[in-house]
Simulated assay, not measured.
Amino acid sequence: MTQVDTTTRFEALRQWAAAQHQLSPETLDLRLAAGDASFRRYYRLNLPSGGSRILMDAPPKQEDSRPFVDIARRWRAGGLPVPALHAMDLDAGFLELDDLGDTPLQLCLAGNEDPQTLAWHEQALSLIHELQNRAGPGELPAYDAALLGRELDLFPEWCLGRWLGMAMPTSWAELRQDLIDSALAQPLVTVHRDYDAMNLMVHDEQLYLIDFQDAVAGPISYDLISLLRGRYCRFPPARFARWVEAFRQRAVEDGRLPSTTDSETFQRQAQAMAAQRSLKVLGVFCRLTLRDTRSGYLERLPQFLHHLEQSLEALPEHAAFQAWLKDTFRPALERRLSEAREAT
């Protein structure tokens, strides 16, 4: 949106919020709290009573808030920690939510092996179990082969073609199909789809789920991977494997995974899921940079390349693609990042 559009929407939001609370728009204490990778913006409304609320501005032409509202109601009814909805105007794209503060989980992480980091990840892993146990996937869109394929194809289109000007290796087609097949072989559960530390808010020492409007019915390992192979930490393979195995055991106990799903099978499925998500993110971050002119995303590409390489080490049948990453893609990425830094 242009600056004019943003200003116009802010004034409309101010008028709407004032009417909700029977306050004068001129005296309303409404300030920008955060933006995200979409067109949504979040504002903090400080009330005369001393309380506060978060107002979401989601322009209807770019953002459909109905999935967020539907999911928030269902998940909250299921006992999951999500912000309460206090008011809404879906035609205008305005929502009023609980104020969960300014502490996303990444601000609490102090290093890969720091006890605080590990403890928060244990809590976040427990919340995935709660999400999958309490929220059925039946009313969510399917994370099917077409969607998995579209996500994977962001890598050759945006990262290789549009940013690096490179062609895909011949080994891509087999890898792409195998990653889709592995994902579809897993049990279907509720998937947040961006279960990242930035979408987990810390409030009163408890984790709350936000930004869940893109939730789908999908593979049981997806949110696990989003957390363990995310933006902020690089865990050693042994720790990653222990967490994956503990997750498998709990999922078997709860009946979300068949008891016949052995450790080796689930470890491979988790690594394949991690490869799929890393390829997707590499494409998404380039698209955010090139199409949406967002800053700060190119710097995170090496993190997800590392995740991708680590995943492929556990999938030796794709050694050819892994060799291409090492010999061709990584040098090209590093050169392009260096050029981008020099240009700024």
Rank of each mutant, 00 (worst) to 15 (best):
P115F: 06
D89I: 05
D57E: 11
E151A: 07
Q271E: 08
A185F: 01
T328P: 03
A238L: 10
L140V: 14
A275K: 00
L179N: 00
F304Y: 13
I225F: 01
R300G: 04
A84T: 12
R9Y: 02
D102V: 08
W324F: 14
P302L: 12
M1H: 05
E122H: 12
D91R: 13
D327H: 15
E139W: 11
A119W: 11
V252I: 15
C286Q: 05
A238Y: 03
I71T: 05
D70H: 11
L184P: 05
L47A: 09
R14K: 09
L175E: 08
R231G: 06
L125D: 13
P156L: 04
L224G: 03
A110M: 04
G230F: 02
Q271H: 11
A215P: 07
T260M: 02
C108T: 11
M56H: 00
L127D: 00
L333F: 15
V202W: 01
A72C: 12
N112D: 15
D181G: 02
L47P: 14
F304H: 15
E139S: 10
A124F: 13
G50E: 15
L257V: 14
Q269K: 00
Q15A: 14
G51F: 04
G50D: 14
R300V: 03
W163G: 00
Y43M: 03
M166H: 03
P169R: 01
M56K: 03
F285Y: 07
